[in-house]
Structures are given as C-alpha cells and as structure tokens.
Design a protein around this nucleic acid. Structure first.
Lengths: 172, 172
DNA sequence: TTATCGTGGATAGATTTTATCTGCAATAGG
DNA sequence: CCTATTGCAGATAAAATCTATCCACGATAA
C-alpha cells in the first residue's frame, strides 16, 4: 500500500494557495519552485485538482491557480481522491470463485466477507481524511510552525501572487 | 493508493487454514489450486506470512502450512502488514524544505502537519483492520456464506489437509 | 502583436508488481 | 539409504504503474 508522491505535493500546493489573497492566482511554476518540484510533472497533479473542482485555473499572463472554494470546504479526502483516484485500495478479485469446483453464480450473491471488512477499514481511513480541512492544516501551520519558515512562505506567496480582474462569472 | 493482489490471496489462504484441524498442514500448491492462483507466486506471499509468524511451515512430504496461532489472535492488520510491509502509505518527502529559501534545519524540528494528518488517518485504517480477527472472517463465512460454497470449501480442506506427528518443539 | 500561462498528448526512463523457473535443504516413507 | 514431495531463496523477466520531460495549442493581459 503506497500513495504517490503527488499527494504530498498537491496538499502542500493547496495549503499554499489558501494563503493567496482574494481571487488572486499563483502560477504553477511558482508552486513548483516553492517545493523544489519538477514543474512539468507538478502541473499534472494540479490539473487533477482543477478537474476535481478543488482548484480553478486562469490562463494567460498573470494567470495561475487559486482555490475553487474556501479552505474550510476542502478536505484532505477531496485532495487525496482527486490525485489518487476514487477507487478503493482493496480490489476484490473474487478469487473465491476460482477454485477447482465450479459452482453456480447464485452461490456468490452474498458479498465476500473479506472484501466487506477491507472496505470498512478503508471507509474509516476516508472518514479520518474527511475530518481534516485544508483550513485546519493552514491554521496548525500558522500556530505551531516555525516563524522563520512561516515568514519565508508568506514572502514567497506575496511575491508570486497575482491579482485578477473581478470576474462576475467566476466570482465566489 | 493500491493494495497488491497478494493481500486478498493471503487473507483467503489464512481463512482456509483456519479450517484445518489440529496441527495438520495444507500444501501451498493446494491453496493455490483452491483459489486458481499461480502456485509459484502464491508461495511468495505465504512466505511473508511465515516470516511474520502468522503461518508455520513444515517441510518434506506431508508438509505444508498451518496457522502459527489461533485464528482469534490473528487480525487482518497482521496479514496486511505482513504482505504489504509495515511502512505507512503516505511517506513525507519533507518537500517543505526544498524551497528556494534555505532555512536552518532547526526551522523544521516540528513535524510536518500534513504528514501528521495523513498518518493519523492511516492509524484509523489500521485500527479498523486490527479490530477484525481471522476468526470473525471465518465465522461470518460460516454463518452467512452460501451452503454450497461452504460445503465445497470443507470438502477441499478435508481432502488436502495432512496430519502431522505430534511435535513437542512446535507444539502450541 | 507578443510574451506568459494552463492544457493535452506523446514519449520515455525508473520503479514496482506480478509471475515463472531453477537449484537447494528438509523429511516422510519405503 | 533412496526417492519423492515439500518449502525456501535467488535469478529472471514480462507487465503495469509512477515519475518526468517535452512540445504544440489555445487563452489572454499588456
């Protein structure tokens, strides 16, 4: 069981974008630089977040990314599912049917108990992720993070964020 | 996020071995046949279970595998960790340090909040897995499974299990 | 018009997963 | 002792996935 590195990048980027003021945006290249990531590859993950309506993107110069809704309404589960996909980690192959004795399909109408137990555990995992909001991450960082790190992040955001024209159609 | 297919195979095999009487064993080839799996590959997973002291193996003709302890004392978590490894699914790459501004390491003594949140969710996952015992799986199967499937499984175990000499050193 | 930005597709290298085979050690039974 | 069966370790390789890069394209602010 393993999560791709994109999850870590996506959460960090989303947390950074939560610090961007108003409807300003931040270019993907700046986000990549902010965490020492490959820009081309990070865009793939940011794209996943955009497709999942977690981020909004603005093309053109002075464009970039911003949160699609308030950080209070974005959970870690939203981000993880957007990047890793919505399929459960445990996929039942129904190998119980593959024995030497072939039974009628009616013998397997009841769901596999092993699958049920695994999915139940995964539901607990997702519930825990759903409990943590992006705003919690940011708040914890602001409250407990090192002041130097905090100052550096704020300066970086300040330097790279770009104000947008008020746009009625995309306005929150 | 994905679990290997070996997990499903391992749990099914362990559940099957829970039905073996006394200290009898069942060969890996029989277990593979029981679920239509590749024998060579299944042995790899069974080996993981043996290394984790979940199964015991007996070499030689009339040898095979059996549970190393009672099914009541084996949880799904034991099996999942044995097969998939004990490392957490989310691995923090500390990308927060990789920005353009290099800070002293002392700025990062506090653990990354994102990592903490992800590991907390994973702890919930593991706790849920730890709550389910192998004996629960078997009991549910016996109580709710289709009688035909149940009968076929029992017959298969009956046919392939092999009694062992009483061995004081390995005795439970 | 130009330069900047996001999007999508093609591509390729690295890593992991899945699977097979072989030789080896252990051992029950003759 | 001999043989057949079984588990074990290692090499190997095919397949899938993850990571990473590049380029052509459309959008748009200045």
């Amino acid at each position: 069981m393993k999560l791709g590195e994109g999850v870590e990048a996506a959460i960090h980027c989303a947390a950074t974008l939560a610090s961007v003021e108003g409807n300003s945006t931040m270019p993907g290249a700046a986000l990549a630089e902010s965490f020492g990531l490959s820009p081309s590859y990070l865009l793939k993950h940011l794209n996943m977040l955009t497709a999942a309506r977690i981020l909004e993107s603005v093309p053109g110069p002075a464009g970039g990314y911003r949160l699609a809704r308030a950080a209070e309404r974005i959970t870690l589960l939203d981000i993880v599912l957007a990047v890793e996909g919505r399929e459960p980690a445990f996929r039942c192959g129904e190998i119980r049917r593959n024995g030497p004795v072939k039974l009628d399909a009616s013998a397997y109408v009841k769901p596999c108990g092993i699958n049920a137990a695994m999915l139940k555990a995964e539901a607990a995992y997702r519930a825990a992720l759903a409990e943590t909001k992006l705003s919690d991450i940011v708040a914890t960082y602001a409250a407990e993070g090192d002041p130097r790190s905090l100052a550096a992040s704020c300066a970086f955001v300040e330097r790279h964020q770009r104000p947008q024209k008020p746009n009625p159609t995309t306005k929150v």
